[in-house]
Design a protein around this nucleic acid. Structure first.
Length: 421
RNA sequence: CGGGGUGUCGUAUACCGGUAGUACGUCUGCUUUGGGAGCAGAUAGACGGAGUUCAAUUCUCCGCACCCCGACCA
């Protein structure tokens, strides 16, 4: 992509009423556009990041046997009345048609997936079963805040599983947990699994996946030696205590943001929608159901919060909108431009995602923009390095500058691009 | 939903009961080009509605929007 063709532009100042770092940087760099409180449009750069996140999530869910589907987000009122959610879920958006027919907007989709699954899962042989989707969710939050981290419309992956036994659910939960943790690591984050309340959802415990960031809304305590971690809303423990799990470590307190969760739904929805299957003896049984959320847009916001520095965004390779950012700093010099053009073509041919700043602008502005946009590898093409035959590449993450050959750059970038997603 | 705050060109801001100014952006032209260039010109703005007043962007009231704190949070 030539940056001169990119329809968004960067801006020097953040809007005065955006306080969240993620919103300030994403707006300044041209990733998102705010529509209203808690609702953002995603612009070309933002879509590229979201698509990478979705790809990463999709591959992870597919790898553990999840089957992707896409359920409606405009829901009939009836299943919500059947489950009791119509009156009990206060964040449920309800809409009325001009003929006064009532609908709901999807905020989680047990009410939709359970009847669908019950049509196809007839026998114990059809279980376990896991389906998921990635898409928009709507929640009537009383107060949207923290930029894209807590909105009224947002992106989420929601998976639902059905099992014949509690043991099988536990087995699957462990697999999801490991997969989630792997995914957060790949996204450059440090995540903890915490026990939390099931809310109105379930009497049973739920598990939350927390990423450490001061922008988070949750307070957690975690052990400095083992994996123990708990949300203070249910924990009796506090900072400085000896870890109740390993008995060795000390608990530390931190702010964190919930980027995923797992709920044990038990038989609640199976019973509400009369979803039964036949067991090996031919008897009707209710399946055990689990649900697994992962906020894709929130994840994007958390990555910005956790990794950005004072110059701008720092994307991990797995989600970056482009892998290489070519910055041509002497746009009036024909030799330099020809060199940059050729490098751009070569990288594209090698399958590398590359943003090429070919704008007729000064070096300072271009470099500041590159820092703000946050692409992992920046390549500066100017007269100095052109003569040496080496390419100056700078890693956004740590500022490390290397002089490498053209072939080395292409080899590095195409390898990194393969890991994309 | 309770409390607090803020609404001025696209963005950030200034002033003022009487002609709304600046910077950045954008457009035109020329010069410039390795960390947010210079000159010249151009473009564009008072959230909405009532009220007070000779006169309201300014004061008052009512809406609406946005931000922050709290509560809430499938």
């Amino acid at each position: 992509m030539r940056q001169s063709q990119l329809f968004t532009k960067t801006r020097r100042d953040a809007p005065k009423d955006e306080e969240a770092k993620n919103a300030q940087l994403l707006i300044r760099a041209g990733y998102v556009h705010k529509e209203m409180a808690g609702v953002y449009s995603y612009l070309p750069l933002g879509v590229r990041v979201l698509q990478n996140i979705e790809k990463m999530v999709r591959e992870a869910m597919d790898s553990i046997g999840g089957q992707e589907l896409r359920m409606a987000t405009l829901h009939p009122a009836e299943p919500w009345k059947t489950s009791g959610g119509w009156d009990n879920v206060d964040v449920l958006f309800k809409v009325q048609s001009r003929t006064e027919k009532e609908y709901a907007l999807g905020q989680s989709e047990e009410e939709i997936v359970t009847p669908i699954a019950s049509e196809y899962a007839m026998s114990y042989k059809d279980l376990p079963l896991a389906v998921y989707q990635i898409g928009q969710k709507y929640r009537d939050e009383l107060r949207a805040k923290s930029g894209i981290m807590r909105g009224r419309e947002f992106g989420m992956k929601d998976m639902y599983s059905f099992h014949a036994t509690q043991e099988d659910f536990e087995r699957f939960y462990q697999i999801v947990k490991d997969t989630y943790l792997e995914l957060y690591t790949k996204a450059g984050l440090v995540a903890k699994v915490t026990e939390a309340s099931g809310g109105s959802f379930s009497d049973k415990l739920s598990y939350e996946f927390m990423v450490l960031t001061d922008a988070g809304e949750d307070d957690i305590v975690y052990c400095d030696q083992c994996t123990h971690c708990a949300n203070v809303e249910v924990a009796k423990e506090k900072e400085g205590d000896t870890c109740p799990k390993c008995g060795k470590g000390t608990l530390a307190a931190a702010k964190a943001s919930e980027v995923g969760n797992v709920f044990d739904l038990g038989l609640k929805y199976a019973k509400a929608f009369n979803f039964t299957y036949k067991d090996a003896e031919g008897k009707e049984q209710y399946p055990i159901m689990g649900c697994y959320g992962l906020g894709t847009t929130r994840l994007m916001g958390v990555i910005v919060e956790a990794l950005a520095d004072d110059k701008g965004i720092v994307w991990p390779e797995a989600v970056a909108p482009f892998m290489v950012h070519i910055v041509s700093v002497v746009p009036n010099d024909a030799t330099t431009v020809a060199y940059a053009d050729a490098l751009y073509d070569d990288l594209k041919k090698a399958g590398v995602s590359v943003l090429y700043d070919d704008r007729d602008a000064r070096a300072g502005e271009k470099l500041a923009d590159a820092d703000l946009i946050g692409i992992p590898c920046r390549v500066v093409i100017g007269k100095n390095t052109l003569e040496s035959g080496k390419i100056e590449s700078t890693y956004r993450r740590n500022g490390e500058v290397k002089l490498i050959s053209r072939d080395e750059l292409i080899a590095f970038a195409s390898a990194a691009t393969e890991h994309h997603g």
